[in-house]
Nucleic acid binder design. Structure first.
Lengths: 186, 186
DNA sequence: ACGTGATTAGTCAAGTCTGACTATAATGGG
DNA sequence: CCCATTATAGTCAGACTTGACTAATCACGT
């Protein structure tokens, strides 16, 4: 529901992974989907397509490698030009804040179309989900080269803020419910 | 960079706008791009395409209207079936929390690849942008039927959390910079 | 000895979203 | 009276993403 020139972010992600070490496609995809899944998402077809484009632009180099009888695999390495692009994209990304929008806010806008008790019940369910997420998500272990934990920290801070806001809001709505209830009775 | 079945959210948005009142395409698009732009984004082609689909599914009805010599305009109204769908989608949206990812976190993961002073400088720029956003964004005035202000409140709370986290983090990084600097001098 | 699952490398169709474009009519400023 | 802007209604190509699929090899448990 929100998109900058998403190419930059994707490219930054791939180049960053390759800054860490040269890898072949499977490894790259695996790393992103396992180690980074909390912080970033990129699916296989997207990764392969983008790797092709980065290779065409000479920002990464490819060389085939065979191990035993296995299907050959392509090892991608970042090039000097790639390192330059990476640094530029990184600096840009760090210096930028592009205000995101949240799917959950759409519901909030139309809250008034639901009877207040039902709205409160639904929001309580949302709250429970955030709390569950905060409780169960395991702290990511520090990576030797990457500051994944920093990004994870950021994510956690935002989720806590989400939780706190929601708690306050529910309390507020319940207060309103009581007063209108009292008015209705009077 | 993040997507649930985005259809649901889009449909909820359009149906919600039509719950407020029957409108023609231009009005719908205008309302979304002006009044709701802080909270939700949907571009014209998406809106028109989705309106067609909602009409095909009989969740909204269309009737043409001519005013003077102007090009005829199509007025869309929500139907009973549309109201049902709307209520279901609304309840779902309110009860759901689908953990978003943020483009800005990608940079955070790779922070270590930039010399610490440069990273700090870049993050300070990011901070300045968030602060500017928080300072300049005008409080949305309450809408008679919609709780846009509630959604806006949520957004603001998250941005403040973002700002606070960033301030702390920059302070932390500066502390680290000083100690490593002292070590280097010693 | 056999099947299951992981490793490796992709591809394809289908759907989504956006930017840029075309047209006409009314309206308001100078 | 003319021009720029707004109102109005769309369309289209192109880019981006995803889910689902194919293939082959190897490691491992039973």
């Amino acid at each position: 529901m929100d998109h900058t020139s998403s190419w930059d972010d994707r490219a930054l992600l791939l180049l960053g992974v390759l800054m860490n070490q040269s890898q072949h496609g499977y490894q790259i995809n695996d790393f992103i989907e396992r180690a980074l899944c909390e912080v970033a998402t990129m699916k296989k077809p997207t990764a392969y397509a983008l790797l092709d484009r980065l290779a065409a632009a000479r920002h990464i180099s490819v060389h085939s490698e065979q191990e035993g009888n296995r299907p050959p695999r392509k090892v991608y390495s970042i090039t000097d030009s790639g390192r330059e692009v990476f640094t530029r994209l990184l600096r840009e990304n760090l210096a930028t804040f592009d205000a995101p929008t949240f799917a959950g806010d759409i519901g909030l806008m139309f809250l008034t179309y639901l009877p207040l008790p039902e709205a409160i019940a639904a929001l309580k369910e949302r709250l429970a989900r955030i709390e569950a997420l905060l409780d169960t998500t395991v702290r990511v272990p520090p990576h030797p080269n990457l500051s994944i934990d920093l990004a994870f920290d950021h994510l956690t801070a935002l989720r806590r803020a989400d939780r706190d806001w929601l708690r306050d809001t529910i309390r507020e709505l319940e207060k309103r419910q009581m007063t209108t209830g009292a008015n209705a009775q009077a």
